[in-house]
Nucleic acid binder design. Structure first.
Lengths: 191, 191
DNA sequence: CGTCTATTTGAATGTACTCAAAAGCGGTGG
DNA sequence: CCACCGCTTTTGAGTACATTCAAATAGACG
């Protein structure tokens, strides 16, 4: 169950077997079906979740009920509402499974115990955060491309493996356009 | 010169006098005039810069030469191109002063020496990165608001002190709209 | 095969952009 | 102190990009 996440961590730091053992002892395994809430808006995000298997989305819902998807997560990614997780404040985002998924979750307290006992992991999380930050930057650059067509092309170039896995109307939301318009873009492109 | 940054750090960790002394010894003081490049696109970001005084922007420039401002930084903020700084790769962003400014800069090597000697600072930087991440999240949520008017209202609510300090056409860029259109939004609002 | 959900299509509308020009504003030098 | 210059903001007309709404078509699943 822990091979994948162990490999993942070993990409960034060199933990000993003992450190790994302690780390994995803090993880909670969670199996969750398709289309389920992992986190609802207004709840506090208690966990940071590593995706062992499956696919999820994090979305912001505005006053009118409109959904704006901010992140997709598949195998080997982490997902949470950072703000809520760190500050213990109610979440702006909701997180929902798009497929049957398996997660490894760590809560805030455990994470801090981990940092205290093995400061090496502090480094790991810093790097992880920075990578996340970088991908937000990339997302931003994509979002600002002038036209929706450019954004879509950018998206399929960057995340080709998402196309077959995520419904088109969800991709539209991520790109900040309506499903109808995305459909029209695809029609144009296929000519 | 170092009181402000010392206070800043003490908000997140409790460094000893010795640790502070070592930290500040790594900092480079830089005075820089208005409208100067701190970092040009394509250069490598050698420093992470703490703003002691002044105001800067970080912007992405696309192929057509269009500028997309991603961040403003004023007193007590940090600014760099994270991606370039961490990976040593050429920067996507450029960073320019909007006012005469005073910075305290730390380079990548020094930062790593600091982490090695006083792991406590690893924690500081992790927290800093997380805060930055949170503000990027907020920014995206803002960017996704349906209309430009909503985005502008969101902006002036969140950063009222920027309004008097940053030219309107720069704010327009940050909001992802043209200066002309922002002007029209303001006209509408004032009726 | 029928039901439910996702995608496509089209027409009308609205939001934001482009381009060009005018007005406002601050600083500098005569 | 005023006139001029450069830069920012405002205005307007015309246009393009993207949305809304309604309906038809396609796909997935039991």
């Amino acid at each position: 169950m822990y091979e994948q996440i162990t490999q993942h961590i070993s990409k960034y730091i060199q933990p000993t077997a003992e450190e790994i053992a302690f780390f994995t002892s803090l993880l909670k395994f969670k199996k969750i079906k398709k289309n389920q809430y992992l986190l609802q808006q207004g709840e506090t995000a208690r966990y940071e979740s590593y995706v062992n298997k499956g696919c999820l989305k994090a979305a912001f819902i505005d006053q009118t009920g409109e959904e704006y998807i901010m992140q997709f997560a598949i195998e080997d990614w982490w997902i949470t509402d950072v703000q809520s997780f760190l500050n213990g404040t109610p979440s702006d985002l909701e997180i929902i499974t798009l497929e049957n998924s398996e997660l490894l979750q760590i809560d805030y307290q455990s994470l801090n115990r981990l940092f205290k006992k093995y400061p090496k992991f502090e480094r790991f999380y810093r790097i992880l955060n920075q990578k996340h930050q970088i991908s937000l930057h990339q997302y931003f650059i994509g979002l600002h491309s002038k036209t929706a067509k450019e954004r879509y092309l950018h998206f399929i170039k960057r995340y080709p493996y998402f196309i077959h896995r995520i419904p088109q109307y969800q991709i539209a939301s991520y790109l900040g356009i309506t499903p109808e318009y995305l459909s029209k873009i695809r029609r144009d492109l296929s000519r």
